[in-house]
Design a protein around this nucleic acid. Structure first.
Lengths: 120, 120
DNA sequence: TTACCTGCTAATAATTTTCTGCGTAATTGA
DNA sequence: TCAATTACGCAGAAAATTATTAGCAGGTAA
Protein backbone atom coordinates (compact mmCIF):
# COMPACT_ATOMS: atom_id res chain seq x y z
CA UNK A 1 0.00 0.00 0.00
CA UNK A 2 0.91 3.64 -0.18
CA UNK A 3 3.32 5.59 1.93
CA UNK A 4 1.92 8.80 3.37
CA UNK A 5 4.69 9.68 5.73
CA UNK A 6 5.45 12.98 4.03
CA UNK A 7 2.01 14.45 4.66
CA UNK A 8 2.09 17.41 7.01
CA UNK A 9 0.72 16.71 10.42
CA UNK A 10 -0.98 19.93 11.37
CA UNK A 11 -3.81 18.29 13.16
CA UNK A 12 -2.66 17.73 16.71
CA UNK A 13 0.77 18.83 17.74
CA UNK A 14 1.30 16.38 20.54
CA UNK A 15 -2.15 16.75 22.00
CA UNK A 16 -5.57 15.20 22.19
CA UNK A 17 -6.36 11.71 21.01
CA UNK A 18 -3.33 12.27 18.81
CA UNK A 19 0.38 11.86 19.11
CA UNK A 20 3.06 12.88 16.75
CA UNK A 21 1.57 11.38 13.63
CA UNK A 22 -2.05 12.25 14.41
CA UNK A 23 -4.22 9.40 13.24
CA UNK A 24 -7.24 11.67 13.50
CA UNK A 25 -5.84 14.03 10.91
CA UNK A 26 -4.87 11.01 8.87
CA UNK A 27 -8.34 9.53 9.04
CA UNK A 28 -9.98 12.80 8.11
CA UNK A 29 -7.68 13.19 5.14
CA UNK A 30 -8.66 9.77 3.85
CA UNK A 31 -12.35 10.66 3.76
CA UNK A 32 -11.83 14.36 3.04
CA UNK A 33 -12.70 16.14 -0.15
CA UNK A 34 -16.04 16.65 -1.69
CA UNK A 35 -16.87 13.22 -3.02
CA UNK A 36 -15.37 10.48 -0.90
CA UNK A 37 -18.11 10.26 1.69
CA UNK A 38 -20.83 10.10 -0.96
CA UNK A 39 -18.94 7.29 -2.67
CA UNK A 40 -18.46 5.36 0.54
CA UNK A 41 -22.10 5.86 1.47
CA UNK A 42 -23.27 4.59 -1.89
CA UNK A 43 -21.09 1.50 -1.59
CA UNK A 44 -22.16 0.98 1.99
CA UNK A 45 -25.80 1.15 1.12
CA UNK A 46 -25.87 -0.83 -2.08
CA UNK A 47 -22.83 -3.08 -1.76
CA UNK A 48 -20.73 -3.96 -4.77
CA UNK A 49 -21.37 -1.40 -7.48
CA UNK A 50 -20.09 -0.69 -10.98
CA UNK A 51 -18.48 2.52 -12.11
CA UNK A 52 -21.35 3.89 -14.12
CA UNK A 53 -23.86 2.87 -11.52
CA UNK A 54 -21.95 4.96 -8.99
CA UNK A 55 -21.85 7.81 -11.43
CA UNK A 56 -25.60 7.72 -11.86
CA UNK A 57 -26.24 7.52 -8.15
CA UNK A 58 -23.93 10.28 -7.07
CA UNK A 59 -25.53 13.33 -8.57
CA UNK A 60 -23.21 15.93 -9.99
CA UNK A 61 -19.97 14.02 -9.85
CA UNK A 62 -17.77 14.24 -12.91
CA UNK A 63 -15.80 11.40 -14.42
CA UNK A 64 -12.59 13.09 -13.39
CA UNK A 65 -13.56 13.19 -9.75
CA UNK A 66 -15.19 9.79 -9.64
CA UNK A 67 -12.19 8.08 -11.23
CA UNK A 68 -9.63 9.93 -9.13
CA UNK A 69 -11.54 9.51 -5.87
CA UNK A 70 -12.00 5.80 -6.50
CA UNK A 71 -8.31 5.50 -7.21
CA UNK A 72 -7.33 7.22 -3.99
CA UNK A 73 -9.81 5.26 -1.93
CA UNK A 74 -8.40 2.07 -3.40
CA UNK A 75 -4.81 3.12 -2.75
CA UNK A 76 -5.75 3.93 0.83
CA UNK A 77 -7.29 0.52 1.28
CA UNK A 78 -10.85 1.70 1.83
CA UNK A 79 -12.36 0.17 -1.25
CA UNK A 80 -11.71 -2.85 -3.32
CA UNK A 81 -11.60 -2.85 -7.10
CA UNK A 82 -12.36 -5.88 -9.19
CA UNK A 83 -12.00 -5.78 -12.94
CA UNK A 84 -13.64 -8.44 -15.07
CA UNK A 85 -12.04 -9.10 -18.41
CA UNK A 86 -15.26 -9.03 -20.29
CA UNK A 87 -16.01 -6.76 -23.14
CA UNK A 88 -16.84 -4.05 -22.58
CA UNK A 89 -14.75 -4.04 -19.43
CA UNK A 90 -16.67 -4.35 -16.21
CA UNK A 91 -15.27 -2.91 -13.01
CA UNK A 92 -16.85 -3.33 -9.63
CA UNK A 93 -16.14 -1.53 -6.39
CA UNK A 94 -16.89 -2.53 -2.81
CA UNK A 95 -15.92 -1.48 0.69
CA UNK A 96 -13.02 -3.28 2.32
CA UNK A 97 -13.30 -4.66 5.84
CA UNK A 98 -11.23 -1.75 7.05
CA UNK A 99 -13.78 0.64 5.68
CA UNK A 100 -16.67 -1.38 7.01
CA UNK A 101 -15.22 -0.71 10.43
CA UNK A 102 -15.35 2.98 9.67
CA UNK A 103 -18.99 3.15 8.72
CA UNK A 104 -20.48 2.81 12.21
CA UNK A 105 -18.24 5.65 13.34
CA UNK A 106 -19.46 7.80 10.48
CA UNK A 107 -22.94 6.83 11.48
CA UNK A 108 -22.33 8.18 14.98
CA UNK A 109 -20.97 11.35 13.44
CA UNK A 110 -24.13 11.61 11.41
CA UNK A 111 -26.25 11.26 14.54
CA UNK A 112 -24.23 14.00 16.15
CA UNK A 113 -24.74 16.06 13.02
CA UNK A 114 -28.49 15.74 13.41
CA UNK A 115 -28.28 17.17 16.90
CA UNK A 116 -26.21 20.09 15.70
CA UNK A 117 -28.56 20.78 12.86
CA UNK A 118 -31.54 20.82 15.19
CA UNK A 119 -29.89 23.24 17.59
CA UNK A 120 -29.35 25.89 14.91
CA UNK B 1 -27.32 30.56 15.70
CA UNK B 2 -26.44 30.48 12.06
CA UNK B 3 -28.46 29.34 9.11
CA UNK B 4 -26.69 26.89 6.88
CA UNK B 5 -29.59 25.83 4.75
CA UNK B 6 -28.03 27.13 1.57
CA UNK B 7 -25.00 24.87 1.78
CA UNK B 8 -24.89 22.30 -0.97
CA UNK B 9 -25.60 18.83 0.20
CA UNK B 10 -23.39 16.70 -1.97
CA UNK B 11 -22.61 14.18 0.67
CA UNK B 12 -25.31 11.59 0.51
CA UNK B 13 -28.07 11.90 -2.02
CA UNK B 14 -30.73 10.04 -0.19
CA UNK B 15 -28.52 7.22 0.97
CA UNK B 16 -26.52 5.88 3.84
CA UNK B 17 -26.81 7.19 7.34
CA UNK B 18 -28.00 10.33 5.56
CA UNK B 19 -31.24 11.69 4.24
CA UNK B 20 -31.84 14.73 2.20
CA UNK B 21 -29.90 17.17 4.32
CA UNK B 22 -27.03 14.81 5.16
CA UNK B 23 -25.98 15.40 8.73
CA UNK B 24 -22.76 13.54 8.04
CA UNK B 25 -21.72 16.03 5.41
CA UNK B 26 -22.85 18.79 7.75
CA UNK B 27 -20.78 17.44 10.62
CA UNK B 28 -17.70 17.05 8.48
CA UNK B 29 -18.03 20.58 7.21
CA UNK B 30 -18.12 21.91 10.75
CA UNK B 31 -14.79 20.33 11.60
CA UNK B 32 -13.31 20.58 8.11
CA UNK B 33 -10.47 22.80 7.06
CA UNK B 34 -6.90 22.73 8.17
CA UNK B 35 -7.11 24.13 11.68
CA UNK B 36 -10.39 23.28 13.33
CA UNK B 37 -9.45 19.87 14.64
CA UNK B 38 -6.20 21.16 16.15
CA UNK B 39 -8.15 23.92 17.88
CA UNK B 40 -10.76 21.54 19.23
CA UNK B 41 -8.07 19.13 20.38
CA UNK B 42 -6.21 21.86 22.21
CA UNK B 43 -9.37 22.99 23.95
CA UNK B 44 -10.32 19.43 24.74
CA UNK B 45 -6.97 18.68 26.26
CA UNK B 46 -6.37 21.84 28.21
CA UNK B 47 -9.86 23.15 28.83
CA UNK B 48 -10.60 26.85 28.81
CA UNK B 49 -7.84 28.62 26.95
CA UNK B 50 -7.02 32.17 25.91
CA UNK B 51 -6.43 33.34 22.36
CA UNK B 52 -2.70 33.78 22.57
CA UNK B 53 -2.27 30.56 24.46
CA UNK B 54 -4.00 28.74 21.64
CA UNK B 55 -1.82 30.53 19.17
CA UNK B 56 1.30 29.38 20.95
CA UNK B 57 0.12 25.82 21.27
CA UNK B 58 -1.01 25.34 17.71
CA UNK B 59 2.21 25.56 15.80
CA UNK B 60 2.11 27.34 12.49
CA UNK B 61 -1.34 28.87 12.72
CA UNK B 62 -1.68 32.49 11.66
CA UNK B 63 -3.83 35.14 13.32
CA UNK B 64 -6.06 35.19 10.29
CA UNK B 65 -6.81 31.50 10.50
CA UNK B 66 -7.03 31.29 14.25
CA UNK B 67 -9.43 34.20 14.45
CA UNK B 68 -11.59 33.06 11.57
CA UNK B 69 -11.68 29.44 12.69
CA UNK B 70 -12.62 30.43 16.23
CA UNK B 71 -15.34 32.63 14.86
CA UNK B 72 -16.81 29.88 12.74
CA UNK B 73 -16.59 27.34 15.54
CA UNK B 74 -18.41 29.76 17.80
CA UNK B 75 -21.09 30.49 15.22
CA UNK B 76 -21.58 26.78 14.78
CA UNK B 77 -22.00 26.27 18.50
CA UNK B 78 -18.93 24.12 19.02
CA UNK B 79 -17.02 26.51 21.21
CA UNK B 80 -17.92 29.13 23.70
CA UNK B 81 -16.33 32.56 23.84
CA UNK B 82 -16.10 34.61 26.99
CA UNK B 83 -14.70 38.10 26.95
CA UNK B 84 -13.57 39.76 30.15
CA UNK B 85 -13.63 43.52 30.19
CA UNK B 86 -10.17 43.88 31.59
CA UNK B 87 -7.37 45.79 30.00
CA UNK B 88 -5.89 44.51 27.90
CA UNK B 89 -8.95 42.52 26.88
CA UNK B 90 -8.96 38.88 27.92
CA UNK B 91 -10.86 36.33 25.84
CA UNK B 92 -11.26 32.71 26.76
CA UNK B 93 -12.48 29.83 24.66
CA UNK B 94 -13.87 26.47 25.72
CA UNK B 95 -15.74 23.57 24.18
CA UNK B 96 -19.51 23.60 24.41
CA UNK B 97 -21.41 20.55 25.62
CA UNK B 98 -22.36 19.85 22.03
CA UNK B 99 -18.72 19.65 21.10
CA UNK B 100 -17.85 17.59 24.14
CA UNK B 101 -20.24 15.00 22.76
CA UNK B 102 -18.26 15.04 19.56
CA UNK B 103 -14.86 14.37 21.07
CA UNK B 104 -15.36 10.69 21.88
CA UNK B 105 -16.47 10.13 18.31
CA UNK B 106 -13.34 11.82 17.05
CA UNK B 107 -11.42 9.64 19.41
CA UNK B 108 -12.90 6.54 17.81
CA UNK B 109 -12.01 7.96 14.45
CA UNK B 110 -8.47 8.41 15.68
CA UNK B 111 -8.31 4.79 16.80
CA UNK B 112 -9.51 3.72 13.41
CA UNK B 113 -6.86 5.97 11.91
CA UNK B 114 -4.18 4.11 13.85
CA UNK B 115 -5.31 0.83 12.34
CA UNK B 116 -5.23 2.28 8.86
CA UNK B 117 -1.82 3.73 9.40
CA UNK B 118 -0.46 0.40 10.58
CA UNK B 119 -1.83 -1.46 7.60
CA UNK B 120 -0.01 0.74 5.10
C1' DT C 1 -16.46 -0.34 -44.31
C1' DT C 2 -17.69 3.62 -41.70
C1' DA C 3 -19.34 5.80 -38.04
C1' DC C 4 -20.86 5.92 -33.78
C1' DC C 5 -21.93 3.77 -29.07
C1' DT C 6 -20.65 2.00 -24.19
C1' DG C 7 -17.51 1.65 -20.16
C1' DC C 8 -13.61 3.31 -17.92
C1' DT C 9 -9.95 6.45 -17.31
C1' DA C 10 -6.15 10.06 -18.17
C1' DA C 11 -4.41 14.71 -19.31
C1' DT C 12 -4.85 19.44 -19.34
C1' DA C 13 -6.44 23.90 -18.48
C1' DA C 14 -9.82 26.94 -16.21
C1' DT C 15 -12.06 28.15 -12.19
C1' DT C 16 -13.24 28.27 -7.36
C1' DT C 17 -12.08 27.68 -2.61
C1' DT C 18 -8.96 27.85 1.04
C1' DC C 19 -4.85 29.41 3.23
C1' DT C 20 -0.90 32.53 4.13
C1' DG C 21 1.58 36.79 4.97
C1' DC C 22 1.49 41.20 6.11
C1' DG C 23 -0.31 45.37 7.85
C1' DT C 24 -3.24 47.63 10.99
C1' DA C 25 -6.74 48.91 14.79
C1' DA C 26 -8.94 49.60 19.63
C1' DT C 27 -7.85 49.93 24.32
C1' DT C 28 -5.37 51.65 28.26
C1' DG C 29 -2.03 51.14 31.92
C1' DA C 30 3.12 51.64 32.70
C1' DT D 1 4.90 56.59 23.64
C1' DC D 2 5.04 51.71 24.00
C1' DA D 3 3.61 47.19 24.88
C1' DA D 4 0.05 43.68 25.31
C1' DT D 5 -4.14 41.31 23.68
C1' DT D 6 -7.47 40.22 20.33
C1' DA D 7 -8.63 40.50 16.35
C1' DC D 8 -9.90 42.23 10.98
C1' DG D 9 -8.79 43.30 5.90
C1' DC D 10 -6.69 42.46 1.75
C1' DA D 11 -3.52 40.57 -1.91
C1' DG D 12 -1.55 36.74 -3.60
C1' DA D 13 -0.27 31.74 -3.36
C1' DA D 14 -1.64 27.15 -3.13
C1' DA D 15 -4.87 23.53 -3.27
C1' DA D 16 -9.10 21.44 -4.74
C1' DT D 17 -12.57 21.00 -8.12
C1' DT D 18 -14.70 21.36 -12.66
C1' DA D 19 -14.78 21.33 -17.64
C1' DT D 20 -13.07 19.70 -21.72
C1' DT D 21 -10.92 16.68 -24.60
C1' DA D 22 -9.40 12.49 -25.76
C1' DG D 23 -7.96 7.50 -25.57
C1' DC D 24 -8.82 2.48 -25.96
C1' DA D 25 -11.36 -1.87 -26.67
C1' DG D 26 -14.77 -3.74 -28.71
C1' DG D 27 -19.80 -3.94 -30.09
C1' DT D 28 -23.82 -2.29 -33.16
C1' DA D 29 -26.18 -0.20 -36.94
C1' DA D 30 -26.11 1.52 -41.89
Amino acid sequence: MTMKSDKKNTSCQGRCPCMNYCPLGGALRLIGGKWKVPILCALNQDGTTRYNELKRKIKGITNTMLASSLKELEEDGLIYRKQYMEMPVRVEYALTDLCSDLMPILSQLAHWGIKVHRSE
